[in-house]
Design a protein around this nucleic acid. Structure first.
Lengths: 223, 223
DNA sequence: TCGCTTTCCAAACGTTCGTTCGAATGCCCG
DNA sequence: CGGGCATTCGAACGAACGTTTGGAAAGCGA
């Protein structure tokens, strides 16, 4: 941890090994926020630098290109999310002598992104950005999503340990279905659900939603 | 069925009440194909008109704008998909004296988009376009997705009839999870699953995938 | 203070895009 | 045959974009 001053708009984005670079921090924070709210396509480099109060050329100077900036934020945030998930899985593993039950494995997968999505959470914007980048990102982003599955491996293995009678192929498919459930928690989908149910579904209750998702997915795994 | 000539590149897109308008048909077919393959953003009006062999101004003349063209294709295709689903639900309802079991309701929801995705299916490109438009579409497209839930109503009601003991709220949420599973069947997600499982998962087997999805979702509903 | 490197800045560049316009063309009906 | 209308065409417009550039400013070790 370097001697970085506590700044309000960008409290934690650029920790790494950089020396100072307040400009870089401002760009990262502004870009993440704007991308999360408006979408990657509808935010220009000019919007970002204006919001951050820095020069137009800053993005290309510090990050190389707009796509590289998106990639950088995406890399940082997904790494952090994966760390949260891995920590929860690790704790569950420790609690159950190396063999956590299915429900706790699934909870480690679901809870971090769900908590991040909570309006009160510090990572709410970050979560929204991740969701945006997943579907609107450049080829490089999609490449990472497609090929980097290292963070999912421990979950697949834990599930196979918890379900030794189940063929691995089956475990992988059900994990795929579960990820689909998780990735579907976007604003537009919640709105649609809200319209369908005439408003009786309230996604703001994170704990209730988590319980529901766990019930559904656990039943699918254990059936 | 009108006396429409069998034309190769656009066999069925523009049936409606138009008189001739081969140009419109060519634009629709070319646009759908290009959008599906490259994405909405990476296809210009020039690409479309060049592919269709028509003048650049044709898109704006016949459809008003590029976004309106996207919306038109999306509207046609989703309407057709909804018709397929409704037909399956109707048949299931008829088979079971007005009270189809959960599994058949879910099958009516899952099977059409899954079949369309099959490489051999006529609607493969259309399905890929729908998926693209769902995430990359304009505000108008997203508005329709968010607010038009009329096609889902019969499914929600059928599920509530099949599960009278379950609170409606619970039914809506589980339907939401099921839709998440369905929407997650994109190329990128299959590739990721492929990478994670070292290639033992083969999404090309539609029937096996459908059975797996039904097993998973049915267990979640009946648990 | 000097010299060097890093960072910042204003301005512009060059490209791509969706859209528009006016004339030309084809087509149908009287 | 001819007038009227829908369609097609080539061409250009104007705006928005990501990126580049060359010089000014600032940080910093010696």
């Amino acid at each position: 941890m370097s001697t970085r001053p506590l700044q309000d708009p960008a409290p934690d984005l650029p920790p790494e090994t950089e020396r100072d670079a307040a400009t870089k921090a401002a760009v990262l924070a502004a870009a993440e926020r704007l991308f999360a709210v408006r979408g990657l396509r509808c935010v220009s480099v000019r919007d970002i630098t204006a919001e951050a109060g820095v020069n137009l050329a800053s993005v290309n100077y510090h990050f190389g290109s707009k796509d590289a900036l998106v990639f950088e934020i995406f890399r940082r945030r997904t790494a952090e999310l994966s760390r949260d998930r891995a920590r929860m899985l690790h704790e569950a593993t420790a609690r159950h002598d190396g063999k956590p039950p299915v429900r706790e494995i699934l909870a480690a997968l679901m809870e971090p992104p769900l908590r991040w999505s909570n309006p009160a959470h510090v990572r709410r914007i970050a979560m929204q950005f991740i969701i945006r980048a997943r579907s609107e990102g450049s080829e490089a982003v999609r490449e990472v999503i497609r090929t980097d599955v290292s963070h999912l491996r421990p979950f697949a293995e834990a599930l196979m340990t918890a379900l030794p009678h189940l063929p691995p192929e089956e475990v992988y498919w059900r994990l795929h279905f579960t990820l689909g459930m998780i990735h579907n928690n976007r604003f537009a989908e919640f709105d649609r659900l809200h319209a369908l149910s005439d408003g009786i579904t309230r996604e703001s209750d994170v704990d209730a939603l988590l319980k529901r998702m766990l019930d559904f997915a656990e039943a699918g795994f254990l059936r």
